[in-house]
């Protein structure tokens, strides 16, 4: 069982805003789903190793980059070749 506090903590970590009135409902749904997930506790840990491909690599060969104009056409804000972003504080 998770509490509304736990859900709020996760929401903070995920940068997802949950309004107060939705928090209770969300917590209930969350618990119903987690309860369903509990069946995973029955899975044996020593399950066989998954074997797939490995060492997939490419050669160190330059391919053309996008023209700056095309890159700067994507965001809403740019300035002297840079892309503008909300302020970050150190």
């Amino acid at each position: 069982m998770v509490s509304p506090d736990d859900v709020e903590k996760i929401a903070n970590l995920a940068d997802i805003r949950l309004s107060g009135d939705r928090l209770g409902e969300f917590t209930r749904e969350f618990n119903a789903i987690l309860e369903y997930f509990d069946i995973l506790d029955t899975v044996a840990e020593e399950a066989g190793e998954k074997r797939g491909e490995f060492n997939i690599m490419r050669e160190d060969e330059v391919t053309p980059s996008l023209p700056q104009g095309e890159v700067l056409a994507l965001p809403r804000d740019s300035e002297e070749g840079f892309i503008r972003a909300p302020r970050v504080m150190e």
Binding site: E79, E80, I83, R84, M89
Partner: peptide
């Protein structure tokens, strides 16, 4: 960082 000191007005990114 654009702006001064601890309170930049916004940031510029170069990828």
């Amino acid at each position: 960082h654009v702006g001064s000191g601890d309170r930049p007005r916004y940031s510029l990114v170069d990828y």
